[in-house]
């Protein structure tokens, strides 16, 4: 399964990146490919291109603030959680997102 994710938090200096790292590890452990874009105070990093967005099966937003350029992910199954939750239990977030994908796709 191809997953893309965006993480963002209000200050954008710590939680954004912790959530991103946690999601990457959890998704890979579960045997999926993932790319995580961070929208921190430095701006967008590891940007998901519109092509990558189009090819993805599932989109996860782990964000406490509005995600920029979310038009890229229109029409994709989109699972939203707080950034905090991805840091605490990224595996659960990914599993719930997959469940969401099965019931909605």
């Amino acid at each position: 399964m191809k997953i893309v994710a965006v993480t963002a938090c209000p200050t954008g200096i710590a939680h954004t990146y912790m959530a991103a790292e946690a999601l990457e590890i959890a998704a890979k452990k579960l045997g999926h490919t993932i790319k995580v874009e961070t929208q921190g105070s430095i701006g967008i990093e590891n940007k998901i291109t519109s092509k990558e967005a189009a090819e993805a099966d599932l989109v996860i937003f782990a964000a406490d603030v509005a995600v920029k350029e979310d038009i890229r992910f229109a029409k994709k199954p989109l699972y939203k959680v707080e950034a905090q939750k991805a840091i605490k239990n990224a595996r659960l977030v990914v599993e719930e997102a997959l469940k969401f994908y099965e019931t909605n796709a």
């Binding site: 200050t11 200096i13 710590a14 105070s41 430095i42 701006g43």
Partner: peptide, 9 residues
């Protein structure tokens, strides 16, 4: 790195 975007830059 964390202090770059809110302090240094």
């Amino acid at each position: 790195k964390p202090v770059m975007p809110i302090f240094v830059i």
